[in-house]
Amino acid sequence: MRPRLIWNRFAEPGVCPFKIHWPRQMVERGQGEVMDETEWLIAREAPGLRRYARALVRDRDRADDLVQECLERALRKRHLWQRTGSIRGWLLRILYNVHINLAKRHRNAPQTTSIEDISIAQPARQFGHLQLQEMARALDELPDLQRETLLLVVLEGLSYEEAACVLDVPVGTVRSRLSRAREALQSLNLAEVRPVALRPVALRRVK
């Protein structure tokens, strides 16, 4: 949005009648420090980006490389964010493109992370360590496109339309990838060890 000079009504006495409407607001960070509003919005999404990146490449350092490249690119190009969608979708799209480019470059590089190395911070209450590793293994065996789509919807809670936008494919493609990924995961039996009651997912993003 271009800044524009507007007539500031009949200005109060002592106030400049001309006021430049800055396209970006500054956000206070305490101690008199400020942060560009877009930068603040980007920083806010960084933890979520790390989560998706870790699920994509599994290796901690490579995932953080990915996020760093994504954040730097996003900050460089922040004026290109059209504010037509959520900033999260825009960032995930950048992250995904960075991932695709890096994957092309490293296509022949040996895969260093074995499934057993995946660090599982703290096994959740209803799943054991082994079950989570099995889940990781099953995800790993999915074709890349299906895995990337499934994780966007399930892990990041994106709607099918948002996921389509991130992956730059039609919504129908998202649905069919999701459907094939879930069919492939059906053989996975997570419930045997500790059954969990079917319940609606309570802690989800609202949108």
Binding site: R54, A55, A121, L151, V154, L188, L190, A191, V201
Partner: peptide, 17 residues
């Protein structure tokens, strides 16, 4: 099963955030 898998995926990678 799908819901269980979704929860497992979130349990696996959710703590990263």
């Amino acid at each position: 099963r799908c819901r269980l898998q979704s929860e497992a995926m979130r349990a696996l990678y959710g703590p990263v955030a």
